[in-house]
Nucleic acid binder design. Structure first.
Lengths: 242, 242
DNA sequence: TCAAGTCAAGAGCACTGCTCTCGAAATGTG
DNA sequence: CACATTTCGAGAGCAGTGCTCTTGACTTGA
């Protein structure tokens, strides 16, 4: 980011440049061959070094995956944030419009980067998955954005018209977990509102994954965008009904 | 299934018994090691034969996966069907109650068989995924159940109160695809209703996957069932509001 | 009885992730 | 400046994978 805060020796600089090349090569490999075809050795070849040498940088295949995951999370969150703030100042603005912008941006990103989406929301890496400390920071940004939108919508009194089904009978352990999240994220709203946000977000991911993973059949995949748009509008009712 | 329709020589019988053992071994392997740890060679060892011999039966690893996928789809659909019909005759009965039964059964199955759920709704097998002809039969059963419920609910006039956001502006190509589905499944209802059913189903899958894949964090995973129950009730509003 | 088929075994190829050791180069320090 | 330390790439190698090909024993239907 900044060229001269700590001098940062040329050694460390070269290192972080190879690291950058690694995620770059990893991403192209991901795009071309899918997550299953991601090979540490192949990346080493791309870097022009022998297979064993790359373990100075990544340590294990799972670590490489984690690298690509945080990269993808950040990229996704960036485009979503951009779209949301374009749909109104992040504090003000119509909550529903902001949710639609968020959902549409998510769809667009997923369609543009299906393999990366798969990496994020497909089968998790067994017993590794998300070393929470590393991924959470960027991994929860979209969810937090949904939460803010839902909170604003609730404040404007648009929640509770019927979308709140189920949130009235939350178990106490759920409520307390939600409250701890709210405190952590610094959002002041009812647990039921966060619950709606959580559900809307999970549903959004599900609807998008159904498209990216081709679960609706080949015919549906061809017109995926036309299906996703109204689905996003439907899910908007969960947090910000008209 | 049946012991004496066509005589079915002892040769073919032995063959289909080994096939059964293969999916049995595959499932235990799946449960214990996850989909990534599924190995053709290991199954061969379990069968007491050398690694190359098993290729007389499966042909490729992807074929083995497909075998396990159709098995899991059938199992899931069976338990869902059982739960739904227990909640009222499949034709009559309160649609909302039936949807809740369906959703809860899906959650229960997923929690009981997380690795098999992952196989069904996690990362698809690249360029193989669902050889439609083989998987579709059982793969769409749950979706069809949701569709029937939604159709019944629509007939009783409970749809359209607000849950139908988005389904009013369906693109013509989407409408025609939905109509062809309806014809194929033999269900008579409005495309908008099927659209709601489709969205509810995808959302359900998303909400469950979020839990199974641990996307909500370790704390949430511990109390997953308490989270899923109200989420199912929330999604019920999409097809059968109270 | 005899040809046709089924099936398991064995050897082997190309590939993977990963570990170890070794020598060269860059690095910071007395 | 010289020296000890760390960093890094190369090479060899291990255990494992999916998959193919060939060979020989066995069962089967004509």
């Amino acid at each position: 980011m900044d060229p001269a805060p700590h001098p940062l020796g040329p050694r460390a600089l070269a290192r972080q440049r190879t690291m950058a090349r690694i995620v770059e090569l990893g991403n192209t490999q991901l795009i071309e061959q899918g997550v299953a075809g991601l090979s540490v050795r192949e990346i080493a070849r791309g870097l022009g070094m022998v297979s064993s040498a790359i373990y100075r940088y990544v340590g294990s295949r799972d670590e490489l995956l984690t690298l690509l995951i945080v990269d993808a999370f950040a990229d996704l969150a960036d485009s979503v944030d951009a779209a949301v703030s374009a749909a109104g100042t992040s504090e003000g603005g119509d909550p529903r419009a902001r949710f639609l912008a968020l959902g549409d941006a998510m769809c667009a990103w997923a369609i543009a980067h299906p393999e990366r989406w798969t990496l994020l929301y497909g089968t998790p890496v067994r017993d590794y998955a998300a070393p929470a400390d590393t991924t959470n920071a960027d991994g929860t940004r979209v969810m937090q954005a949904v939460l803010h939108i839902a909170a604003d919508a609730a404040e404007q009194g648009s929640i509770g018209r019927g979308a709140a089904s189920g949130s009235e009978d939350l178990a106490p352990e759920v409520t307390s977990l939600l409250e701890s999240h709210l405190a952590e994220f610094g959002v002041e709203t009812a647990p039921a509102t966060e619950f709606a946000a959580l559900t809307a977000w999970s549903s959004l991911v599900g609807v998008i994954s159904a498209h990216v993973f081709g679960q609706l059949g080949a015919d549906a995949a061809a017109i995926g965008e036309h299906i996703l748009r109204p689905q996003v509008r439907m899910l908007a009712d969960l947090v910000a009904p008209r």
